[in-house]
Each structure stands twice: as structure tokens, then as C-alpha cells.
């Protein structure tokens, strides 16, 4: 059995009376894509924020590569190896695509307390950033400011930034949102290769993409995981069918 990279143990988070995350446990293993699906408002993004450190859980733990990271800040978790993309693109708007990637590379290589050498003169940093942009197909757009990129290009830049972190695992929140069918197809084949580098915890609305890509699927409803298993198991699960297809559950 492959080694566990990321593990969530009994995570809970309430917003007032609303239990957005309710005792969620799951694992992400080397080489796999673990997809998290569920209807709108099920608590998928909240779970992502608990893992990335943007929110602190009311209960439960997050483990990365055998070390607990629950108490760490967002930045420390990122340095520990979480590569996150946001559901709504969140980039440095005035920076070109290249500089957005360079920023991630710079953070990964070490601290940012360097005051003397100009970043843009750092050949090695530029070349690595350019190579990453080429990989996601943004090479020709390297010098365009993030604010000016199209929606689809910004989604790709999100992925490129996560790639630049060379993380131990990826946390991708709806990377296909708004990409169109062609873009989605390209991203599907890209992610299929990417999982060999580091496993992916994937939130995605596009069910076709999920069923093509995922090795395992967990279904989140009202903050709780109601089913977890292989694509075939999930397809066959009566509770899931009830949630997604409105079928009556047979008791």
C-alpha cells in the first residue's frame, strides 16, 4: 500500500450554528488523485481552508508527511509542502505571469529577506519560472500582467504557481471552473501526469472530469463525508445517487 502523504483526522468547524465541517477524516496517498465532491455549500472550500491553514478547526488534526501541521500558519504550511490553488483565482494582479511564478519559486527556495540582488536579474529563477509556464502552456503569455490575463489563463497560472512550490501534495479547488470543454480536457490529461509528482486533493464540480481522473472519491454533504471509495463504488452508492440524482434511497 502506498504511503499516506496528507491525513485529516476528525476535522470539525462550525460557523455559529452551521456545521460546515463535521468530523471529517480522509487520507491522500502517494500517486493518487483523491476527489472531493458534493453539492454547493457542502463545505468543500471550508475543508480546503482548514487544510491550508486559513481557518483553524474547532477540533481535529491535519498531518502532512508524518508531521502534524494543525497549529501552523498558512505560510508555514505552504513551506511544509502544501501547494494550493484557489477556487476564485487569487494572484498578484500587478505582477506578470512570470513574476507570479517567480514569487512562488523565491518563497520555496528560502526566505525573502534578501535586500541586495534584483530578482529580475536572477537568471536561474527566471528560467525555472519560464519552464513552469511552458509546462502549463502559458509560455507565450509570460510577460502579461495577471490582472490582464483571461479567466482561463488565470486558472492555469494558479496551477503554475502551485507547481512552482514543488509541494508534497496539491490542494486544487475547482481548477476547471469556467475553462470550457477543450480547456478541461487539456487540464484532465495534465493532472493525470501531475499526480505522479505529488498526489492531488481535488475539489471539482465537473463530474466527467472527476470520474475520469479520480482514484478515490469522497462525497461531502452538509459538512460530513457520506461515502468514500473508488469511482465504481461511489457510482453504485445509493446514498450518493440520492444526493446527486434525487433517487429514493432504498433502505
Amino acid at each position: 500500500m502506498a504511503e499516506t502523504v496528507l491525513e485529516l483526522r476528525g476535522l470539525s468547524k462550525a460557523f455559529g450554528a452551521l456545521k460546515a465541517t463535521d468530523n471529517v477524516s480522509l487520507t491522500l496517498k502517494k500517486g493518487e488523485i483523491h476527489a472531493l465532491i458534493g453539492p454547493n455549500g457542502a463545505g468543500k472550500s471550508t475543508l480546503m481552508r482548514l487544510v491550508s491553514g486559513k481557518l483553524t478547526p474547532d477540533a481535529g488534526e491535519v498531518w502532512l508527511g508524518g508531521a502534524e501541521i494543525t497549529g501552523l500558519s498558512v505560510a508555514r504550511r505552504a513551506r511544509a509542502g502544501l501547494g494550493r490553488s484557489f477556487q476564485v483565482s487569487s494572484l498578484i494582479p500587478d505582477y506578470s505571469a512570470l513574476r507570479n511564478v517567480m514569487l512562488a519559486l523565491q518563497a520555496r527556495q528560502g526566505h525573502s529577506y534578501r535586500f541586495l540582488m534584483p530578482v529580475m536579474r536572477d537568471r536561474a529563477l527566471r528560467e525555472s519560472a519560464r519552464a513552469i509556464l511552458e509546462r502549463v502552456g502559458l509560455g507565450p503569455r509570460a510577460s502579461v500582467e495577471a490582472a490582464v490575463l483571461s479567466h482561463g489563463e488565470r486558472r492555469l497560472l494558479e496551477i503554475a504557481v502551485a507547481l512552482a512550490l514543488a509541494p508534497r501534495c496539491f490542494l486544487l479547488d475547482e481548477p476547471m471552473a469556467g475553462l470550457g470543454s477543450e480547456g478541461t480536457a487539456r487540464l484532465v490529461s495534465f493532472l493525470r501526469e501531475l499526480k505522479q509528482e505529488a498526489p492531488i486533493l481535488l475539489i471539482e464540480h465537473d463530474m466527467d472530469a472527476v470520474f475520469q481522473l479520480a482514484d478515490r472519491i469522497s462525497v461531502l454533504v452538509y459538512g460530513r463525508i457520506i461515502a468514500s471509495g473508488s469511482t465504481a463504488e461511489i457510482r453504485a452508492d445509493p446514498q450518493v445517487r440520492a444526493v446527486y440524482l434525487g433517487e429514493e434511497t432504498t433502505a
Binding site: A75, D94, Y95, S112
Partner: peptide, 25 residues
Amino acid sequence: AARFGAALMAIRQNPDRAAAVGISP
């Protein structure tokens, strides 16, 4: 122009993104 400035200006524009790549604001 230095890495410090790159981090600082990034934090000004989008502190969440800076933190998500590992830069503590």
C-alpha cells in the same frame, strides 16, 4: 527590486496569495 521588495509588494496586493506560497506577511 530585491526579493524582499517582491515579497512586500506581493503582500500589499494579495496577502492571502503571498501566504499561500509560503511568505509570512
